[in-house]
């Protein structure tokens, strides 16, 4: 390590568009401070490329504080990199050491086609939400008072835990089947646990699972990698709950 920081070799996936074939390109970066975030290291690489008259690497990012779910890098074979409970933007360079070679790839899944370089298309998640990830209540100043239906604290807390999903897609990227079960089950669970969501629970789980399958996401074989890599710690219990909801809805629904 130099006194100014680390020197690193980056192996980065470059792909012009969804129609082109991609390949790994190699870049060197110097003087990387251990206090940098991973994306600030990527900024440094891009500034270097721009100054050299080359095209910078495209990657998704926005809030850079771990909540918007935009960033989506597969780093050394792990979704969001080697740290746990963080998104790529919260990963810091102190997790790496001088001389390291770092492989940086996009999410890999048929349902998440690459748009360019490290940017993928995750609109499949939106379409699953459009199929049923809501409670059908119109905006009105006349909904009943918020405290008219007490909700047991445990249910509210579990609903909240499921609702903290940021929709980043790490679960899909890390799953050997590219399954979206953790994402879908988090929304199904949140709404199934709340009295307001129970009325449409059957239709919701059938419609959302139907759309999930139509998008080309794979099946769940209970490997559990999604839970390990999830930056928000969404629990596998949600998948179990969704399976129960789905089974019961399939048997009892009129549709």
């Amino acid at each position: 390590m130099t006194e100014n920081g680390m020197n690193l070799t980056l192996k980065v996936w470059r792909q012009k568009s969804d129609k082109d074939k991609g390949q790994i390109e190699t870049y060197q970066v110097k003087d990387i401070s251990e206090h940098m975030s991973f994306l600030e290291m990527m900024d440094t690489m891009n500034e270097q490329l721009i100054t050299a008259g080359k095209e910078p690497v495209a990657f998704d990012h926005d809030c850079r504080e771990g909540i918007c779910g935009s960033c989506s890098l597969f780093i050394n074979g792990e979704a969001h990199g080697p740290d746990r409970g963080v998104t790529t933007c919260q990963l810091h360079m102190r997790k790496f050491k001088d001389g390291d070679t770092i492989y940086i790839e996009p999410w890999r899944s048929k349902a998440f086609p690459v748009i360019k370089d490290l940017v993928v298309d995750r609109t499949g998640f939106d379409r699953i939400m459009n199929a049923g990830g809501f409670i059908s209540v119109n905006t009105s100043g006349n909904t009943q008072d918020a405290n008219s239906i007490p909700i047991p604290k445990d249910d509210a807390d579990h609903a909240f835990d499921a609702a903290t999903c940021i929709g980043c897609g790490a679960c899909v990227a890390t799953c050997k089947n590219a399954s979206a079960m953790l994402f879908v089950s988090a929304k199904v669970s949140q709404l199934a646990l709340l009295p307001q969501g129970k009325i449409e629970a059957k239709d919701r789980v059938l419609n959302m699972v139907g759309q999930m399958d139509a998008e080309g996401f794979g099946s769940c074989t209970n490997t559990g990698a999604c839970e390990v890599e999830c930056p928000k710690g969404i629990s596998l219990d949600n998948i179990a709950r969704m399976n129960r909801e789905f089974m019961s809805a399939s048997i009892t629904s009129d549709k």
């Binding site: 809501f134 409670i135 209540v137 905006t139 009105s140 100043g141 909904t143 009943q144 008072d145 918020a146 405290n147 239906i149 007490p150 909700i151 047991p152 604290k153 509210a156 807390d157 609903a159 909240f160 609702a163 949140q190 709404l191 709340l194 307001q196 969501g197």
Partner: peptide, 21 residues
């Protein structure tokens, strides 16, 4: 009205042990 609307939509606000907000 905002709080009423959000609860009706399934926004999981923090609650006390009695189940109220």
């Amino acid at each position: 009205n905002i709080i009423d609307q959000c609860v009706a939509q399934g926004v999981p606000f923090a609650r006390e042990y009695g189940g109220l907000l």
